[in-house]
């Protein structure tokens, strides 16, 4: 079943040197699966995520054939209707919890605010729901965390709180933009485990944006590889290592390996043709 379908998405920014195209004609579909988007910085992967939620500010321009969420075209909605989609139907987790939590509000107050804004319920219920969500992301003492301020939390805790907040309205799609790159490897794994469980248990669709190829290969079902605003390759995550495109191969080869020592790493040689070739469609054939 397809939850989200994006066709021919463009994100443009007018600059003094002319129009800069950050995303150029990207199409893909998302079912109840974990879809990874990988690429280097500047490849347009984060912009793709933001464009779906229409979070690109002016003067940036978003153009698309359609962005369809279960039959509704998000491009046609007014800003007011769009606010009902954000958070409630599609949520986003940003890279660094330090910049996405309000430093002068307790975590409990922030979580309850999010819930009360979306649902017409009492504070008691909001509190109960917040506690439940904190437990769902494996926080052992939710009562204390509710009273704490963001600076009292570690990076891993902060990121779990962010995920818990995003899950309160029970969204159908979660867009995670580098959710674990600010975290240590061991904590990274806990956060991924939590997201994985939520996708399987709640039947959510997940768009996982990352620059870490190995992480995506192991965590996602399908991967889009982006280069210079275009999708250069789409493949099943478990077959990423058999990737055909020279860019994907180059990225994989440039990683140091513990088990395979060598004096020099293979540096990526870029080819201008990669940026020119049209985007590969990431729409799943059987969807």
């Amino acid at each position: 079943m397809t939850l989200l379908e994006v066709e021919d998405l463009w994100v443009k920014f007018p600059t003094r040197q002319g129009i800069f195209e950050a995303v150029r004609g990207v199409s893909f579909s998302l079912g109840k699966e974990r879809l990874g988007i990988v690429g280097e910085s500047g490849s347009g992967k984060s912009m793709t995520g933001r464009a779906i939620l229409r979070l690109i500010r002016k003067p940036g321009i978003v153009e698309a054939g359609h962005i369809t969420l279960e039959g509704t075209d998000l491009m046609q909605l007014s800003e007011k209707e769009m606010r009902k989609v954000r958070g409630q139907r599609i949520s986003m987790v940003m890279q660094d919890p330090k910049f996405s939590l309000n430093p002068v509000m307790t975590i409990g107050a922030q979580m309850m605010e999010a819930y009360l804004l979306h649902k017409n319920t009492s504070k008691t219920q909001a509190r109960a729901k917040s506690l439940e969500m904190l437990k769902a992301v494996s926080i052992s003492d939710p009562e204390r965390v509710m009273r704490a301020y963001p600076h009292e939390m570690s990076g891993g805790m902060g990121q779990r709180i962010m995920i818990a907040m995003m899950l309160i309205p029970d969204p159908q799609i979660l867009i995670a933009d580098e959710p674990t790159s600010a975290l240590d490897v061991s904590v990274q794994r806990q956060v991924l485990d939590i997201m994985d469980r939520l996708v399987t248990e709640r039947g959510m669709g997940l768009i996982f944006i990352s620059h870490d190829l190995n992480l995506v290969a192991e965590f996602c079902d399908r991967v889009l590889i982006m280069y210079a605003g275009r999708v250069v390759e789409v493949c099943d995550a478990d077959r990423l290592h058999e990737a055909k495109h020279p860019y994907t191969q180059g990225l994989l080869n440039s990683l140091p390996r513990i088990e395979d020592p060598r004096k020099h790493l293979v540096a990526l040689k870029r080819d201008d043709a990669w940026a020119e070739a049209p985007s590969v469609s990431g729409v799943k054939a059987d969807a």
């Binding site: 280097e40 990225l251 440039s254 540096a267």
Partner: peptide
């Protein structure tokens, strides 16, 4: 840094 750039810097350091 990105992995491709990381490879270049590590090579330089070597």
């Amino acid at each position: 840094l990105d992995v491709s750039v990381q490879a270049e810097i590590l090579n330089l350091l070597t």
